[in-house]
Design a protein around this nucleic acid. Structure first.
Ligand code: FES
Ligand code: FES
Lengths: 145, 145
DNA sequence: ACAATAAAAGACAATTTTGTCCTATTTAAT
DNA sequence: ATTAAATAGGACAAAATTGTCTTTTATTGT
């Protein structure tokens, strides 16, 4: 609803990759898709986008797979994933669908919407993969159900 | 992005209807689509959804059109329009796309997402058509650009 | 009654998003 | 070198969303 399916898969996949990378494990698309309960081939596509944007690292060949360097894990924010997959419509777009959001000629919802949108942006830019992965690690959160 | 196109048109249309109803004027789909810059037939469809949900009133025949009773204008909230058109996914759905949002088995983003979502819900349930229409009335806001 | 007006309804078309499948490329291990 | 394992990439298919068009129904005014 808020994010596209591709973006939802992308976030879940990235969190799972981060989780495994914390333990030094590299993971395949097949494993990822299984663990986050998503369509394999489609997930592979969206992982390509993340790779191209240097959000995750992919290694081809036997014993290859996806990983995220431990150093990067904290600097990779959710906002980067969302932007890579869904673009910046969520951050910039007008809530009522006017061509662009423009405070000088605002739509009737502008003030209230801009406030929500700004909180969302802050939340996304402040939330790192590391943060999300650690909750998973101790079994408090879930990537499928 | 946040709302579907149908929903964006629906909100803009409802605000315009409210605005005209304040002046005792009934408006046709053609006029609405023109004033909010939306595809006529498609807008007509989404207006049907609003009338079925008693959000706007439609009158057939010559001198017919759409209107909103002045008494209703304040009690019709944005949340009702969004729910009628996009359903309650925005209010209930999991941000990462798990089948349902469930605080007992939360996704890694649950806490932060639920907070944003709750603010959005509050904003939508507290914002009335009347409120949005009045800004328009005095020329401070725009429904097209 | 009749003609004109406007929304309702339904069938269809175009586009976007989501999803699948097959081939190519890269790499590791033997 | 050969084989096997893995991602990359492209063509295709299905489904959902967005959009159009035509016909039907209700209502008004003459
Ligand atoms: S103009 Fe609509 S949200 Fe800013
Ligand atoms: S479980 Fe994901 S938002 Fe609540």
């Amino acid at each position: 609803m808020m994010f596209s399916k591709a973006c939802e898969y992308g976030i879940r996949a990235a969190v799972y990759i981060a989780l495994q990378s914390l333990e030094g494990k590299r993971v395949s698309v097949a494993e990822i898709a299984d663990e986050i309960d998503s369509p394999v081939a489609f997930t592979a596509k969206t992982l390509q986008q993340l790779t191209r944007n240097n959000i995750v690292k992919s290694i081809k060949g036997p014993s290859g797979g996806f990983e995220i360097e431990k150093e990067d894990m904290d600097s990779v924010k959710l906002s980067m994933i969302v932007k890579a997959i869904d673009g910046d419509g969520i951050y910039m777009g007008c809530g009522l669908g006017l061509k662009e959001c423009n405070a000088n000629q605002p739509c009737p919802l502008h003030d209230k919407f801009a406030d929500i949108r700004s909180n969302l942006r802050k939340m996304l830019t402040n939330t790192s993969l590391y943060e999300l992965a650690t909750g998973l690690e101790v079994g408090l959160t879930y990537l499928k159900r």
